[in-house]
């Protein structure tokens, strides 16, 4: 009977160590939705460019601005969906949405992302457009790997995949669009589905 108590002690210790240092209420469903938004956004961008810009994208043209708006809307929608679904899941788990573990997660996720974002803006200002797509994938991947220490560890693998896609994209920039579709669209859906079945369904 005593050993049962000790076993309970150990599992409680592990649980507390996890709960106090990692924010694990990330919603898998929000990953799926972010992927779907990305695919829809990509389809719109593709249609805009093929239909109205004869397949090439002229910088600072009207179509270019529409594509940028499309990109921004997708990113915005994904973040909002993520926050809403994660708050819901955190509430269900009885966890606090904005505690030290989620703060740490957000800060560590944003460090590579903001550094990368500023870097991309700087080189865009210097008229170097070719590597933008690769850099976004790369920095997003680094941000995920960095954040994984403070959340579900599996995010790390999604980060590695984005980094690899980013490197491929740097190597063959001509396929940038399709690598984006793969990275931001398909991979989010695959990963979100995996997380959904691994963590959300069980409970």
């Amino acid at each position: 009977m005593e050993s049962k108590d000790y076993l309970k002690d150990i599992s409680e210790i592990k649980d507390l160590m996890n709960k106090s240092s990692r924010f694990i209420s990330l919603s898998g469903l929000s990953g799926i939705l972010a992927g779907i938004y990305a695919l829809i956004g990509a389809a719109i961008a593709y249609w805009l460019v093929v239909e109205y810009s004869s397949g090439t994208l002229v910088l600072n043209g009207k179509i270019f601005r529409l594509v940028m708006l499309d990109l921004f809307l997708i990113a915005f929608l994904s973040v909002v969906t993520g926050i809403i679904l994660t708050t819901r899941k955190a509430k269900k788990n009885g966890a606090n949405m904005w505690d030290s573990s989620s703060r740490r997660l957000v800060v560590n996720f944003l460090i590579p992302l903001i550094a990368g974002g500023i870097y991309i803006l700087i080189i865009l200002g210097q008229q170097k457009y070719g590597q933008t797509g690769a850099l976004m994938l790369l920095f997003y991947g680094l941000a995920l790997v960095n954040a994984s220490k403070y959340s579900i560890g599996d995010i790390r693998y999604l980060g590695f995949i984005q980094i690899i896609l980013g490197l491929i994209c740097a190597w063959i920039p001509g396929y940038g669009f399709w690598l984006w579709v793969l990275g931001f669209g398909v991979m989010h859906i695959v990963y979100g589905t995996w997380m959904y079945f691994k963590y959300d369904i069980k409970k």
Binding site: D9, L16, S20
Partner: peptide
Amino acid sequence: HRIRLGIMSILMVNEYADFNMLKELL
């Protein structure tokens, strides 16, 4: 004791924790 084990577990993986954080978690 459960609470003492809990306090130590949290402090082992965090640089520090304040009173409220311990209270909430435990």
